[in-house]
Design a protein around this nucleic acid. Structure first.
Length: 816
RNA sequence: GCCGGGGUGGCGGAACUGGUAGACGCGCCGGACUCAAAAUCCGGUUUUCGAAAGGAAGUGGGGGUUCGAUUCCCCCUCCCGGCACCA
């Protein structure tokens, strides 16, 4: 083998070996300990970017590490192939979305292979193919039969010029990205999945996920937003129907001084008919996009409707307002306002001169001024008639009981989580398997007529969906009565495909059922790796779908992902890489220049996986330099002739030191990768060991055998990160069998033993000396040695020693 | 606005359970090799005072708990992710 490191030769050779040996194709073997190791599959945008390289490398390292631990590892790959970019490419370049997508997949598959990832390509999934999406159409029809899906009106971003529904991303500062027209909120009928039926289970299930990051669990908990409160109704003067509101603070009920409804609320619409100002205000509210962040950050505005509600306890009239920050989609679209004890209500009241009433006082008897700020804590009721003096719990129950007894309200558990709207008015997605019949209503497409195939040969104009202009697609007979009917032309949200693909990798070729026995073998995913940006939506939808599949009898598993790793972004010059900023780094060029191993090594070394990673071309150089040193170290060692096994009983001190370092490093790297997932420190430890090996200049038989043991350990331990060079060096070290089939080295505990240990001596917490003590030294002996130190004495300076703290093996702190 | 995360040398980062701040790498400085350069190798590198020994300061800012805080608590600030139609 060449004395010179040539990454291209080394890498293509290793990849050829893995392909010939089918190293990564796995079947189901009940006797083996399975490990299902998965990344969030990519959208086939055309070219791999550094974010992809990062997440796939992290996962490949974990997969290869577990394989070295003797696990039966499955690492599949596929394509999240439906979505907007394909339509945009079609508009801009006139290529049909399907053609563009399939060509991108070809390119990206080639790039993935060049990076040496250990995928079982026989299980590849492409979501835009009918053999994949037919099963989510089928599951949807099952959900339809069970009442788990329904149709209702909901708000979309409407571009009045392009006559098109816009994605939030296509709304820039409230205007359509292509037309520049002010976006309007518009209500259209859409399909929803009842994820709220599973709200409690999705919430409680988080407790069964000890290996998920706490931050992700916290975000999901807050997103589900379970709260316990009371739903109660206020009569409205001159209206038959009362106004229902939900509150988690019924104890503040006597502090209600006004009420507010959303612009889309029926009462606002009714007032608008007779009040031009209200009509104008409601119109103004609708001249904005539908994003929550927009609603929450815009200036809080409101207008009195000229209608009053009757306070259910006091009988007083309170004014009814319409406000731009009330969400029709959350709760009942109406709120009772308690400006004394709610920050937003307080601000709104101040702004519009509405009264502020204190009805809660601090429990400790202190006084507050409700005119300065709302008092948000729970306390004791005041100015609340019969309820005065009660604390939160007592007041909650007394008021809830009162309303339940009078039939005007009830205790209610409420969720922030809303049902999942899955309809998209787009072409490039899975057709929703529904047919509308004038007589039979919405009818699910029968199983024997699935899949509903999306026509791929279409022209995309950017105005509406082409499916709406294709009678050959939408004109169908009603499956129930046979009358002329119309097929649904909306498609699914692409989150539907990504909510179950992980299960389908087990049996991608089964055309009879959605999931089979092989899915039972592989589920759940043992390790799931993906971007933190998916912490809520994708991961929550996938957890929901897993339960829907379970309740359909397709699996016994409730939680799809056992361990979750959320990796950070790749930055350049402190900003996310983007074409617009011109700060992208193309992985392809770097692979050609340095090879895949250098890129993989740098990306794993530059930052811990959860943190954002700052790209550095100089850092890549450094990784390349390290691999060259690594190569040379092994080649030079081998060139000096054979080395036998280590005889641990016949080593000198320097040989013992290198052996100790070797076995300490084996323990550290195993812990860093296996438990801590701290790949950057694992690589640092390997670098340190290699530095020690190179410095170790001992050509005796014993010296060479110790060195060989160390080098072999480094080769095996670095192989998850840089598999190609390690494959070659393992051969170089004289092994017949391939590295991919080896096991992780074992720690020799005897090699770890040492006689002396360095301890730090502090005086009043400040470092003053280092002492070398016997490992088994008694505490008072250590104290005596520390006190005897010259510099320590200087700082004690004849002051009285009040206390000595000894932390065995670490430090002595002398307090004077 | 709300929820979650982050801020440590010139730079990326390390310090895992409250116990040596700056491992490892980059960059830079000096040296070796070379006609020269690249590559490679050796040494140095938080700031500051000092010839040195050895001090002082220091982990976004302010306060607190502790013998001891990058680590725990409170307040503030800046940056990043998510907010339901980007994926």
């Amino acid at each position: 083998m060449s004395a010179h490191y040539n990454p291209e030769i080394v890498e293509l050779d290793a990849q050829q070996h893995w392909e010939d040996a089918r190293s990564f194709e796995v079947g189901e073997d009940a006797d083996k300990d399975k490990f299902y190791c998965l990344t969030m599959f990519p959208y086939p945008s055309g070219k791999l970017h550094m974010g992809h390289v990062r997440v796939f490398t992290i996962n490949d390292v974990i997969a290869r590490y577990h394989r070295l631990q003797g696990k039966h590892v499955l690492q599949p790959m596929g394509w999240d192939a439906f979505g907007m970019p394909a339509e945009n490419a079609a508009i801009q370049r006139g290529i049909a979305p399907a053609k563009w997508t399939y060509s991108n997949i070809e390119d990206m598959r080639g790039q993935l292979k060049r990076l040496g990832y250990g995928y079982d390509w026989t299980r590849e999934i492409t979501t835009c193919k009918p053999e994949y999406y037919r099963w989510e159409q089928w599951l949807f029809t099952r959900m339809f039969e069970k009442g788990l899906v329904y149709r209702k009106n909901s708000i979309v971003n409407w571009d009045p010029v392009d006559q098109t529904v816009l994605a939030n991303e296509q709304v820039i500062d409230g205007r359509g990205w292509r037309s520049d027209a002010l976006v309007e909120r518009r209500e259209i009928p859409q399909w929803f999945m009842k994820i709220t039926d599973y709200a409690d289970e999705l919430l409680d299930g988080l407790d069964d996920l000890p290996c998920w990051p706490d931050s992700v669990k916290a975000m999901q908990r807050n997103w589900i937003g379970r709260s316990e409160g009371v739903e109660l109704s206020f009569d409205v003067v001159g209206e038959e129907e009362s106004l229902t509101v939900y509150t988690t603070r019924p104890d503040t009920l006597m502090g209600v001084t006004y009420m507010a409804v959303a612009a889309e609320h029926p009462l606002a619409a009714k007032a608008a008919k007779t009040n031009a100002d209200v009509a104008a205000f409601v119109r103004e509210c609708q001249q904005t996009d539908a994003q929550e962040a927009t609603l929450e950050t815009m200036e809080k505005k409101g207008m009195p409707l000229g209608i009053s509600a009757i306070h259910p306890l006091s009988g007083e009239e309170v004014p009814l307002w319409v406000a731009n920050f009330i969400l029709m989609s959350y709760g009942t679209g109406a709120v009772m306002a308690v400006p004394g004890h709610d920050a937003r209500d307080w601000e709104f009241a101040k702004q519009h001169g509405l009264p502020i009433k204190q009805v809660i006082a601090p429990a400790d008897g202190s006084t507050i001024d409700i005119d300065d700020a709302a008092y948000l804590e729970k306390g004791v009721l005041v100015n609340s008639g019969d309820y005065d003096g009660l604390d939160f719990d007592a007041a909650f129950n007394a008021i809830a009981d009162f309303f339940e007894a009078t039939g005007r309200g009830s205790r209610k558990v409420n969720y922030r989580l809303r049902d999942w709207g899955v309809s998209r008015q787009r072409y490039w997605g899975t057709p929703i398997p529904i047919i509308y019949c004038d007589d039979c209503g919405a009818v699910a497409v029968p199983e024997d007529q699935l899949p509903v195939i999306l026509p791929e040969d279409v022209e995309i104009t950017g105005v509406g969906s082409p499916l709406r202009d294709m009678p050959e697609f939408y004109a169908v007979p009603c499956p129930k009565c046979g009358k002329d009917a119309r097929r649904e032309t909306d498609t699914f949200d692409t989150f539907v495909e990504s909510s179950w693909y992980f299960a389908r990798y087990a049996c991608p070729d089964n055309d009879a059922v959605m999931l089979d026995d092989r899915a039972a073998y592989w589920a759940p995913v043992d390790q799931y790796t993906g971007g933190i940006e998916h912490a809520i939506l994708h991961l929550l939808y996938a957890r929901f779908f897993q339960r829907v599949m379970r309740d359909e009898g397709l699996t016994d598993v409730s939680e799809p992902f056992t361990n979750l790793l959320t990796q950070g972004m790749v930055l350049k010059d402190g900003a996310k890489m983007s074409k617009a900023k011109g700060n992208t780094v193309d992985p392809q060029g770097l692979i050609e220049k340095y090879g895949a191993d250098t890129v993989r090594l740098f990306i794993m070394f530059a930052a811990p996986p959860e943190q954002s990673l700052e790209w550095s071309d100089d850092g890549v150089q450094g990784s390349y330099r390290f691999l060259k040193r690594f190569w040379r170290a092994v080649i030079e060692h081998v060139a000096r002739g054979p080395a036998g096994d280590v005889d641990a009983s016949a080593l000198n001190d320097a040989q013992k030191d290198l052996r100790r370092k070797t076995h300490q490093t084996i323990a550290k790297i195993g812990d860093d990768i296996g438990r801590r997932r701290s790949f950057n420190t694992a690589i640092a430890a390997a670098m340190e060991l290699l530095n020690a090996i190179i410095r170790f200049d001992d050509d005796s038989d014993a010296g060479r055998s110790v060195k060989r043991e160390s080098l072999e350990a480094v080769v095996v331990m670095l192989s998850p990160m840089v598999p190609h060079i390690c494959h070659a060096l393992w051969r170089e070290l004289g092994h017949e069998s391939a590295l991919i089939d080896q096991r992780w080295p074992e720690v020799d505990k005897n090699a770890l033993q040492q006689d002396l240990v360095e301890m730090v001596v502090q005086v009043n917490g400040k470092l003053r000396a280092r002492i070398s003590v016997a490992v088994d030294a008694a505490q008072n002996a250590i104290e005596a040695q520390a006190l005897a130190d010259e510099n320590v004495q200087r700082f004690i300076d004849k002051k009285e020693v009040r206390k000595v703290i000894v932390v065995p093996g670490r430090l002595v702190n002398i307090v004077v």
